[in-house]
Write a protein that binds this DNA or RNA. Structure first.
Lengths: 184, 184
DNA sequence: AGTCGATGCCAACACCTGTTGGCAAACGTG
DNA sequence: CACGTTTGCCAACAGGTGTTGGCATCGACT
């Protein structure tokens, strides 16, 4: 498929959609507002993405880019993962969009579950002693990382917002480490 | 003020509102649906609560009922708080409603910040070594407890949902404990 | 019995939503 | 140049939203 002239429009829509979904959530992010941000007509959004649901699906495509666990010393896994999550979150609106939307939109919640099942679970399975424990351990890791993201990027709890990323990772790292490798 | 005949209606509205806000979030919980659940006319909601925002404010009124820290052995504070949070969450729709709504509604987010500032912060201040650290420590506690609630009651991550409350508290307890009392 | 406020429902409003179809201009190709 | 396709905008639809005002009914009190 050759490069089309409309690719720029498609991309602009996606950027605007991510920003709106991230700041407003699924229902309050209107197609009209997204189109206005992208400086095009609302009907263009429909033509290129079908409907709002599919637009969100396209905008919420995300790769956590989790590192290879075997490349990290086992005792620094927790801190490493914590730092990686925070970096990934700060640099991209997509995860905040997904998190905000997932609170009220079932499809977005399903996407979130998928994200952690497909991307986080294997990493945890490779890092924890007994692979049979992996789901539970991955779930626990999710509670801490998503909770941190929720307080920092969505609810904006002042103490959590003001904390430097480095310090947040230092606090949360041992928690992740324990969820990954602690016995029982 | 004597008891009015409309008190039952008022209460029914509040119950229906909490359920709807908890399961649908702020925007998708419509006044019409709430009124239908309460078996009354939508205009009644307006008469008794003014508008949707005020209705939510009334429905999201919540007391964490945090225990007196001095009554608990200092080394069991983390586990105790974790259990208390989970109990409080399971037994009442209000917190889920607040959490879901806070993801997309700024007023709800402000309410959540207030809840933690007014109710959680003093408890943490009384429990941690240096009161000057209290805000940061309370923020960290919030990340773990809200993250757990998010994964369990909102996103419904299977491993976190299936985990018995007792086990969840056992895992999360030491984390809370560390956030409360660990040095630095 | 008659009065007055409280309670409730109905119908409607103004607005916003996702979504659609048609029409004009621009483009690439023969 | 003429052709069909792509890209874009405009106008409109149908349905849902919060919210309002008017009108009937009920209850209590004089």
């Amino acid at each position: 498929m050759a490069e089309r002239r409309s690719d720029a429009t498609r991309a602009a829509i996606l950027v605007a959609a991510r920003e709106r979904f991230a700041s407003d959530g699924y229902e309050r992010a209107t197609i009209r507002a997204i189109a206005a941000d992208a400086d095009i007509d609302p009907s263009m959004v429909m033509r290129y993405y079908g409907n709002k649901e599919k637009l969100f699906a396209a905008a919420a495509e995300f790769d956590l880019q989790l590192p290879d666990v075997s490349a990290i010393p086992p005792d620094q896994l927790g801190a490493g993962l914590a730092r990686h999550f925070l970096n990934r979150w700060e640099g991209d609106d997509t995860l905040t969009a997904l998190l905000r939307a997932a609170a009220t939109n079932e499809a977005a919640a399903a996407r979130m579950r998928d994200l952690f099942g497909v991307q986080l679970l294997p990493v945890v399975a490779a890092a924890c002693p007994d692979p049979a424990d992996a789901p539970r351990r991955a779930g626990l890791v999710a509670t801490q990382m998503l909770g941190l993201a929720l307080c920092r990027f969505v609810l904006r709890l002042p103490p959590v917002v003001e904390m430097p990323a480095e310090e947040a990772a230092a606090w949360v790292g041992p928690t992740i480490q324990r969820y990954l490798t602690a016995p029982q």
